[in-house]
Amino acid sequence: MGVKDKPRDRFEALANRYATDLYRYAVWLCGNEALARDLVQETFLRAWRALDSLKDQAAAKSWLITILRREYARTFERKVPPLVDVDAIVVSEEAELQPEERLERELLREGMCSLPARYREPLMLQVVMGYSCEEIALELGITRSAVMTQLFRAREQLKAKLQADGVTGKLHELF
């Protein structure tokens, strides 16, 4: 057994590669920093305990996402608070942005938080996790056509949010 085949090394490689994106995805999924951290902790704890069941490393990302979504559904779905503290998590990055960019980002974030989950989740799978439409369809158990529709509507709603608030700026070509 080579070093890279050891369970501990396999696990740490997975954590190194996916923990950050899983956390971002969890934040957008549940809208709460504390719950997102718990979700990621639980996801990797379960992944560690079930590592033997991951036969194909290429499937690791979808395996982890599936664990996280199940954990979210099981534990927090009925207790999760509304999307309230996303701003508190991400505003620190924005000191370097120009005022117009800061406003755009804030509006986008508001728009994202107000999107129905059926639109927000596929969009985050695509943007944060890099999923293809086919992979999203598989993960969510819906058709590729339905995924395309949800993604299109999600973007349209976000663009409409910017437009409604008068922040079209360089985005004018979109509308």
């Binding site: 971002r24 951290r37 991400v90 994202m112």
Partner: peptide, 19 residues
């Protein structure tokens, strides 16, 4: 713009250490 908003900075070292 969408990616810049969605892929916000994360303290990866602290997160990884916890995991």
């Amino acid at each position: 713009k969408l990616e810049g908003m969605a892929r916000f900075p994360v303290d990866a070292d602290a997160l990884l250490a916890e995991v």
